[in-house]
Design a protein around this nucleic acid. Sequence first.
RNA 1: UGCCCGAUGGUGUAACUGGCAACACGCUUGAUUUUGAUUCAAGAAAGUCCAGGUUCGAGCCCUGGUCGGGCAACCA
Length: 554
Amino acid sequence: MTEEKSLNFLEEIVEGDLKAGKHASIVTRFPPEPNGYLHLGHAKSICLNFGLALKYGGYTNLRFDDTNPVTEEVEYVESIKNDVQWLGFRWQNELYASDYFDQLFGFAVALIKKGLAYVDDSSSEEIAEMKGTPTQVGRDSVYRSRSIEENLRLFMQMKEGKYKDGEKVLRAKIDMGHVNMLMRDPIIYRIKHAHHHRTGDAWCIYPMYDFAHGQSDAIEKVTHSICTLEFVPHRELYNWLIENLEIYPSRQYEFARLNMTYTLMSKRKLLQLVNEKHVNGWDDPRMPTLSAVRRRGYTPEAIRDFCDKIGVAKRDNLIDISLLEFCVREHLNKISNRRMVVFDPLKVTIVNYPEGKSELLSSENNTEAAEVTHRDVPFSRELYIERDDFMEVPPKKYFRLSPGQMVRLKSAFIIKCEEAVKDSHGNVVELHCSYIPESRSGSDTSGVQVKGVIHWVSKQHAIPVEVRLYDRLFKVEDLSAVEGDFRDYLNPDSLRVLPQAWAEPALKKASVGEHFQFLRMGYFCLDPDFNGDKLVFNRTVTLRDMWAKEVKKG
RNA sequence: UGCCCGAUGGUGUAACUGGCAACACGCUUGAUUUUGAUUCAAGAAAGUCCAGGUUCGAGCCCUGGUCGGGCAACCA
């Protein structure tokens, strides 16, 4: 390492703390709520939290923030664990805020005993009303002056299930006139007669985020509690509770969440897309969830590289999705075996190639690999090429096939288009071509130079496969700047299914988790739930395409 | 009318903590290429939100503005 990368502001803080002897080593945590699937925004947080601990010699806990039983499920817990591991990180401890319910309850009692918490009988609406507004101070609740004994008794009764949902809450007694709305006697416990995915029916009162998160951090002696910007105002309360509960002083630091062009990064809205069937589940390859991009063929290496490249700061950002695609291509280019698949077939007959004959040609799997290996590709008289690779009236600089023109069939021969056969409507249905026997790939003595190289498959050897082409889920770049309902901006062409494309036979052996580059078409992987004998391939990402740009320019 | 964050090429992140702005993506052009991919080379693109101030010197410090984001869920 010749040049050292400059530190981001969190690394600076950590290095500063370490240097100052504030901590001997650091502890971070990744704290998802199990109420949905993890997405690319979480990947940034995961890479940050685990990355910091890895870099500075500490560890990271996976802690589920499961304090709201009505939205949380074990299905989400499982998917989250799976995704974090897939990304390549290992947590020190698997923990749950619900593990601390007893301690948290104790903290609440301690607060009451200090005269710093009270039971409020006001309704949700009343509490909201008395809270004031950002520019207007709040008012004290009439229950604010209850005695410690009464608060203790009432809180105990809340726990015992004497009251219905919403009948009472426990609030911290801070300051209803505080400029920070969160300090205006925040609710710290509420009644929910709901079944919890871990604690079952043991509890009917549950702590709020602010009374669980920081406390959990403290219990775990988390040194650096890293969260997104929207929690900045919570920090004051976070610190107030640490001070008044006299617990381990974890410190909270905030960074700007990841936003990406053409991408929605809100769990709530993603859930809506799933529920309303705009997509086929959380792992629909068009989704930004980790399970979806995995299914689509993104690699953990590419995502980690991406998280590294986007950096960490405190200003709002909108990352161009092309950076992610760049990272994906960069990795896939190195690891993917090349295969030939014709999506939209045009039949080609090699008129001077013997009928009934076929031969095996050899083609590189991946010239980028350290050790280049080969596979056999069958060649015969009848082939399929891409319909796009022929034009009867070619534009300038088009160096594929057109009447009288020559191209190289990748790893095979140079062919010349002798005739375009048409149907009664004038549509080209077949090409008659001649091939140059001496132009065989690897032993070309023909001396003929061609600019174009196209992919192909042998008609009789090709296997039919389904190909799914994905495009961006939304039509607009910046979803946050859009008016009206986000669902109005869904891209109707985000999924294109080609039920029958023709693949070279080597693809029969494809397995889930393997990455391929379909020559000139993009990177693909086998979909995990293909059914029957037909293989289904997902397009991970296209190749860069200068020709498409050229065409666009006109 | 309040409080809290933030502001550097199109996008994102840097700038050895005060020494005349760098890297990546994207874009343009050229070379190589049996993938119009990859690779390689070159280039365009900000004078750092504005106005003052401190200083020999400011993107970095100070003051005042402007703009953007956030703050009133028994969500996290």
